[in-house]
């Protein structure tokens, strides 16, 4: 495997928002170009800096792990949608920018 590292993803398994969050979180390690073709999302990753010690294989694994973690976070957020807001609204009733 050589740089750039490329991945082709099924957008049903990895929605665009998941891919974008993963790319954002890895910005200090790899710079990722995201492309969309039909039902596929393509990623092209380059080292974020010349002195990166990560091999292309390690970068591939790291990107996949982040994609899977953000897909799981997306699932958790969908299962709990609205609850965070309900909690904050109930807990913080009556406060604003207080004097």
């Amino acid at each position: 495997m050589t740089w750039p590292v490329t991945l082709k993803l099924d957008s049903a398994a990895y929605p665009l928002s998941v891919v974008q969050r993963a790319a954002y979180s890895l910005a200090d390690t790899v710079t990722i170009q995201v492309g969309i073709e039909a039902n596929q999302i393509s990623l092209t990753a380059h080292p974020a800096e010349a002195r990166l010690t990560l091999s292309p294989e390690q970068a591939h694994s790291l990107i996949l792990q982040h994609l899977n973690d953000f897909a799981l976070r997306d699932h958790i957020n969908r299962e709990t949608v609205g609850l965070r807001e309900v909690l904050a609204r109930a807990a913080l009733a009556g406060c604003g920018i207080s004097q």
Partner: peptide, 19 residues
């Protein structure tokens, strides 16, 4: 769990209730 969680959340953010 919500009443208890709201009370906990309020404790962690109690600084918002004063200037």
């Amino acid at each position: 769990p919500f009443p208890e969680m709201a009370a906990q959340y309020r404790s962690r953010k109690d600084f918002l209730f004063q200037g």
